[in-house]
Design a binder for these strands. Structure first.
Lengths: 227, 227
DNA sequence: CATTTCTTTATAAAATCTTTATACTTCTCA
DNA sequence: TGAGAAGTATAAAGATTTTATAAAGAAATG
């Protein structure tokens, strides 16, 4: 899964920095904007997955920034504000905010609310898939298929295939493959590797005698070729 | 546009009545439940567009009601609670709540938050039912049937099956399954898992010796295959 | 207390890994 | 070029690990 992008629009430097650190440590990609105008520009260019918007912005009324964003921006927007009067909250929510937190807010709660909003919105569940010719590797489901037909791989075979797929086009030496899949103590067991390469080819190559996906580089190692 | 249906689950009569009146005057259809058990039943039968859930319920822990609802209910859930401690809020949000309001809340704000949540969502999804071959899992009524014949499952078996069904096609590791169903301290008890998998297969597979629904991925875990 | 469900243990079966044997390919250098 | 060496491919047998299942005792349920 890809890191979610979060845009923070806040005029206070300290708060911006604090949020930056907090969000980064929760493994989000963070974008920062110091005022509404800048926020709108960055949002338009980067399409963040979520926006944290401080209502007490200097350059324009926060509510109008919210409205402008909502003209085209459909992902969640959370309002952070020192204002706790109901009128302001209701207006923000009716202007398209998905949540409203009164400052000082609690970090854990903010993070939970962010998770909650990202959870639903993430309809574009991009599950990472690697393809080479007829074979498709679905990393999230740990599923490999050849021409749509599921291929059953053992743990070791799968580890080997993944390693190849991740280094598509590159020659991987025997030592490297043995070290990565079996561990340091197996580095000299190259016969080992051959047995598994043969098994893998039997399962994914259309003609195992003339391999096109896992190609031998005599004396060095093997190479995974995607078409 | 049709009136939105809102289910209120709250044990206090006065609050329930107050919400009933407030919501009706905002032109919603209101359903009322006095405890978690009743709430789940009404939710299953009526598929409300939104649920207001009071966490201080008498019959069971509110968080567990929330979890049970979330097994199949996908529309917004707003938590109302007297508890304002962060832990409780974070837990509720992570258990699938879309919002959390601390009592006493302001009516106008609650209404705005309801509008906000109804604005997006309302992707009226059909029956939360999962099928694989002859077996049918009705998540809303917690009913499993094999060729139309009801299958009797223990709580643990059901929890396991649900976990599989929600991750159809994906390989679930032993550790993950053990953690989710039995808790962190059971992570290494994989023999355990095998016993329950065997039991489940005996109940739902047409030929338990050649399983087609719960497939073994040797060395890793199991995979649920829907047809 | 009877019944159901959970937990543990034992053992058989299956799948996978490891090793061995042998044939095949590619490379090297007289 | 072609014979030997080095490297590679593959099948298959044996060893090991992982999985399936029954069954018996413990705990929970009602």
């Amino acid at each position: 899964m890809n890191k979610a992008k979060i845009l923070v629009i806040d005029d206070e430097v300290q708060l911006r920095k604090l949020l930056d650190i907090t969000l980064q440590s929760s493994d989000y990609n963070v974008l920062l904007a110091a005022d509404g105008r800048e926020g709108i520009v960055i949002a338009a260019n980067n399409r963040p997955d979520l926006i944290l918007l401080d209502l007490g912005l200097p350059d324009q009324n926060g509510q109008s920034v919210l409205k402008k964003l909502r003209e085209w921006y459909t992902n969640p927007i959370i309002i952070l504000s020192a204002q706790s009067n109901e009128e302001e909250i209701v207006m923000a929510l009716d202007n398209g905010a998905n949540d409203y937190l009164v400052k000082p807010y609690r970090t854990g709660e903010l993070m939970a609310r962010i998770r909650s909003l990202l959870r639903r919105g993430s309809t574009d569940d991009l599950n990472p898939v690697i393809t080479s010719g007829a074979i498709v590797i679905d990393l999230a489901s740990r599923l490999v298929s050849n021409n749509g037909v599921p291929v059953k791989l053992t743990v070791t075979e799968y580890a080997l295939l993944i390693l190849f797929a991740r280094n598509e086009g590159r020659v991987l030496t025997h030592q490297y493959l043995l070290k990565e899949v079996w561990g340091n103590s197996y580095i000299s067991q190259s016969q080992y590797l051959r047995v598994f390469i043969a098994q893998l080819r039997k399962k994914i190559e259309s003609d195992p005698n003339r391999p096109k996906i896992i190609v031998t580089e005599s004396g060095i190692g093997y190479r995974f070729v995607a078409s």
